[in-house]
Amino acid sequence: MELTSGWADPEPMAEGGIAGLSPYLQDRLEREAIPKSGKDALPPEQDRLLDQLLSAAFRE
């Protein structure tokens, strides 16, 4: 069977929450029709997320 369609116009990826972690995760959420943001969003900027993670790891 010949495929006649092509790539559709791109759309923005989801940001923040667990959806913001990786394309793999976004892909799985879309395939399984799971809402694209976790209840508690992660900082979208990786430097800030790392700072928070490191601070949390070494603080009680």
């Binding site: 069977m1 495929l3 092509g6 790539w7 791109p10 990826m13 940001e15």
Partner: peptide, 21 residues
């Protein structure tokens, strides 16, 4: 069954989808 198809990203942070017939 599919000739070469090129994505049409216009910005980073986008997802493109390829559809069947």
């Amino acid at each position: 069954g599919m000739i070469a198809r090129t994505t049409g990203f216009t910005a980073h942070g986008q997802v493109a989808r390829l559809h069947d017939n």
